[in-house]
Nucleic acid binder design. Structure first.
Length: 139
DNA sequence: GCCAACGTTGGC
DNA sequence: GCCAACGTTGGC
């Protein structure tokens, strides 16, 4: 199973909103970036990802899971844009901040650090385990 | 709130 | 197909 990272501004759509959707999950719509879209197209059912709060928060707050494969984004008629649905799995016991990630040499190659603009990105298995460990949460 | 970095658009 | 102009993201 591949691992991913989803970014959202908590003022717009935060972890609590995601949890409120329960197991039904919610469409990860509104992405208008080809790389991010391609990442979503590559996702499989059951793939898990980190939920990251951007701009305000700057930390990973929980784990989500892909609960619907890539499909047309209902927030637009433009057929270029697809997205998956995700549901909350569990929150981190302790959140992992961007600062922690940036200062950990093992995480220096993360896309989160290298390309802060990409809103849906892949995470390596190693990075996944390190961050779950930092968050005192089982992978 | 600012602005650097990045992605996209559109004129040529 | 290039690249200047523009818009958006996201850390600070």
């Amino acid at each position: 199973m591949a691992k991913w990272l989803f970014k959202s501004e908590p003022d717009v759509w935060g972890w609590n909103a995601q949890v409120a959707k329960g197991d039904a999950g919610e469409e990860w719509g509104g992405v208008r970036n080809y790389q991010a879209r391609n990442n979503m197209r590559a996702m499989a059912l059951g793939d898990q990802g980190f939920f990251y709060h951007s701009r305000t928060g700057l930390e990973i707050v929980g784990i989500v899971e892909v609960c619907a494969l890539s499909h047309p984004d209902s927030t637009t008629d433009d057929e270029r844009w697809d997205c998956v649905d995700i549901k909350a799995v569990r929150p981190f016991k302790t959140t992992v901040t961007l600062e922690q990630i940036k200062t950990d040499p093992r995480l220096a190659d993360m896309i989160l650090v290298k390309n802060s603009r990409l809103s849906v990105q892949p995470v390596s298995d190693t990075e996944w385990e390190i961050i779950c460990d930092l968050g005192n949460t089982k992978p």
